[in-house]
Design a protein around this nucleic acid. Structure first.
Lengths: 218, 218
DNA sequence: ATAATTTTTTAGACAAGTCTAAATTTTAAT
DNA sequence: ATTAAAATTTAGACTTGTCTAAAAAATTAT
């Protein structure tokens, strides 16, 4: 039995860890969940006890396979309910979040399976975020160059085409690493330059950069 | 802010007190909620503090107007969700309760208003129980048992008294569902059996069946 | 490399909701 | 009207999830 609170922590860890890959700091979780670091430590211990996260003191946490599945199931439920609220109950896209935060914790596999069918197996929620399947898989998004993205799209850095040390140093300097989430804020047509948002920072890049960075669309 | 637990207590008190009129004993609540009398006393104090019940030590509790409205709102939500589960998500009558017990606590006035409209303002849940309006008023129901009808009368199936899965499966097998129109073709006095017309079919039933099917005379 | 700062954890506390066991009040029985 | 039985409440404890304040570890800066 996973409690509401535990589900919320797992969801937060999932989001902070870019789909459960990297490990997440106590403070990051506390900030995201608007709670205290000490509360996070307490909860992490419980999650660890239940084998939902891997945890070593002072080393941050990461989701176990079981924790990841729990998190994606909650996200799946949240997004399916959002579709329901918008498509069937005439909610506007900005009203759904609060209610979906409650509905996502309802426990019934049949409920969510039937809801999925009733909504005709939607692939994205009203905010455009993808809805994972029952196994927690998001539809395969393939490797592409950053330059291929359109304005507003978000992606994850998964590699470089040019692996010269100059380029790598450039990336390092601008805090772009493997797993970094990059959002394309704007894109100029005439020189193919872009403005990116990386964490809280804004960065302008040339086409030489965007043509040499492999990303995975979100 | 009323908690899930408080809502469950108010609902129990409402049901035990026949629509909030008479006062209810601690033990009766404990028995219905499958909890201990001491826990009930503790909770009653909290509810009394919040002016949801009137309470004098050793004298039992009764709902205040505010408590009654909270209780009927929960019952309204429960029953609307049951209709949703059966009508839209293909749940059978006997599967809905557990899930509705969770859904009834979701807090959103808009959600329940829109759900009501989406379901086209149902007056009864799948068990034939009436759905109160927003003010907590139940529509005067002419609900009766099929066995009370005379030969030649027609009615609409609105619910079951016996909700065992055996009975529900029997009904299912013979194409009797919510909203099914039933005509009493003949009625035997000696064993109270009946012959019904359902759609184009004719069906003979025993008094065990007619005594457990709620209908609304047409 | 040591000191200063930040992050994380621990210790101890609190509210909600529950429990057991004991005390108190009410009700029923003689 | 007393006594026995039943119902109810109190007292003290436990769990979950949170907090503050202090201690410990890790990181950063000098």
């Amino acid at each position: 039995m996973v409690t509401f609170s535990e589900e919320n922590y797992l969801k937060a860890i999932y989001h902070l860890s870019k789909h459960g890959s990297v490990s997440v700091s106590t403070n990051a979780i506390a900030q995201r969940m608007d709670t205290k670091a000490s509360s996070v430590t307490d909860m992490i211990k419980k999650l660890s006890e239940k084998d939902l996260v891997d945890y070593k003191k002072y080393q941050g946490v990461s989701l176990t396979e079981s924790g990841r599945l729990t998190a994606t199931t909650v996200i799946r439920k949240h997004r399916l309910w959002e579709v329901f609220l918008v498509d069937k109950l005439n909610f506007s896209w900005d009203e759904v979040h609060e209610v979906a935060e409650q509905l996502e914790h309802i426990k019934s596999e049949k409920l969510i399976d039937q809801l999925d069918a009733f909504l005709e197996f939607p692939t994205h929620d009203p905010h455009g975020d993808p809805i994972p399947d029952k196994q927690g898989n998001f539809k395969k998004t393939e490797k592409m160059l950053l330059s291929q993205l359109a304005e507003g799209e978000t992606c994850i850095c998964i590699g470089v085409k040019d692996s010269s040390s100059e380029f790598l140093q450039y990336l390092d300097k601008h805090q772009i690493a493997l797993g970094t989430i990059i959002k394309v804020v704007s894109k100029e047509t005439f020189d193919e330059s872009m403005t990116l948002q990386i964490n809280a920072e804004v960065l302008a890049i040339s086409k030489e950069v965007s043509n040499n960075l492999f990303v995975k669309a979100n």
